[in-house]
């Protein structure tokens, strides 16, 4: 259970975080839960990789963070996609689709 989710390649996790935030802006724990949910438990990012990804995306200007009061009146940092992030996500999604299709074709070849 501990390190299974770190099988995620670095760039892929970035993309998943972007997608998650595209649906709605949320705090870091929320992102982690959402990714777990949406992948039906296949991906469970550990704190280290997740925060690294968030730091990278912040530094590249793809997401923005802001401290806000959370639901149970605790302070948490909420992240949201920037315009650049939205464009980047579209690009990544298209690219990923291409690659996945290509891999599928190779694997199905007899």
């Amino acid at each position: 259970m501990p390190d299974k989710s770190s099988d995620l390649v670095q760039g892929t996790l970035d993309m998943l975080v972007l997608k998650t935030l595209a649906l709605e802006s949320m705090h870091d724990y929320g992102i982690s839960v959402r990714i777990e949910q949406m992948s039906k438990g296949v991906f469970r990012p550990n704190a280290g990789s997740l925060f690294l990804a968030i730091q990278r995306l912040q530094r590249d200007g793809l997401i923005d963070g802001e401290w806000k009061a959370s639901d149970n009146s605790r302070r948490a940092k909420y992240y949201a996609l920037t315009e650049k992030g939205r464009k980047g996500l579209n690009k990544e999604t298209r690219e990923w689709g291409r690659q996945a299709a290509a891999i599928a074709r190779i694997l199905e070849a007899s």
Partner: peptide
């Protein structure tokens, strides 16, 4: 602070 919040929320779940 951010990490603690994260862990708190995970623990609460």
């Amino acid at each position: 602070e951010e990490l603690r919040a994260y862990h708190e929320m995970a623990a609460e779940a």
